[in-house]
Design a binder for these strands. Sequence first.
DNA 1: CTTTCTGCAAACGATTTGCAGCAGC
DNA 2: GCTGCTGCAAATCGTTTGCAGAAAG
Lengths: 154, 154
Amino acid sequence: MADPEGTLTELHSTVAPRLRGAGLRYTRSRRRVIEVLAGTDRPLTIPDILARAGTLAQSSVYRNLNELIDAGVVHRIVAGDEFSHFELAEELTHHHHHLVCTRCGRVEDFVPTDELESSLHSVLRDVSASSGFALEHHRLDLIGTCAECTRLTG
Amino acid sequence: MADPEGTLTELHSTVAPRLRGAGLRYTRSRRRVIEVLAGTDRPLTIPDILARAGTLAQSSVYRNLNELIDAGVVHRIVAGDEFSHFELAEELTHHHHHLVCTRCGRVEDFVPTDELESSLHSVLRDVSASSGFALEHHRLDLIGTCAECTRLTG
DNA sequence: CTTTCTGCAAACGATTTGCAGCAGC
DNA sequence: GCTGCTGCAAATCGTTTGCAGAAAG
């Protein structure tokens, strides 16, 4: 958490007005949660976050995450695993999808090629238009076994 | 559930050996669950299934679904909604993706064009190959508001 | 100061599980 | 018959919530 490049500072100044706009205070706990999420390249579970955050009540983390989600700053991923996973909203980072490991439940990010995204977009527009569905966003997950689990169990 | 075309009979004769292969009996409850899932065009929740199945204990449905999933005959969809949704495995029906409504939690099927699927496949192969991830399958969901909810609430 | 948070512990609710009797083969 | 399944009720466990004291502004 050294932040030599001022990335966190920049992040906080993006997040702060969003919360204020939602009538929320940008408290120390919320800042901590945001920092933890910013300091990783994969969506984290509540236990992950608690382990990295120092002293924070579990209930506060749950509550804060829900508020951050309502404010559009954090995104929840339900992977089928026992825990939900949380990450910063794509708007604060970059568009990506997920690799979900069916053995260990771990979720990792992957950034799609422009080619994939543009063909995806054009087709999705058609589908939603023809079914009267108002598309907000899409979710593309690759399900399988991560490198580590493959190594361990074949 | 008239089944004039014998579709259900055919389905049962596909499912039965799979269960036997997994050391499971194809009991009346399990047949019923399969029939209910076959009789709809969208993934159902446990309450949905109970409402359509006649008299079945909730715990048996939960238990049976898990066994059917282990046997590869049923597939679980976690939509972020309070309940999980269940559908027949694609192998018993056809490949498709989902439209998930963020307002009412309803999940509907959509069948992708060949164009989408083939570009998806080629890119996904690349991604998984380069990350050491053993790809089993993919999941593409469109998230938004369904036609009905749009009509009701704008 | 007033309002909104936090931490604790208790409540919730979807899903799982133990057990006694019943059905599949 | 033996084994595996069902139904019921109780237990589990991730997540939510009520409340009294503590920070934010």
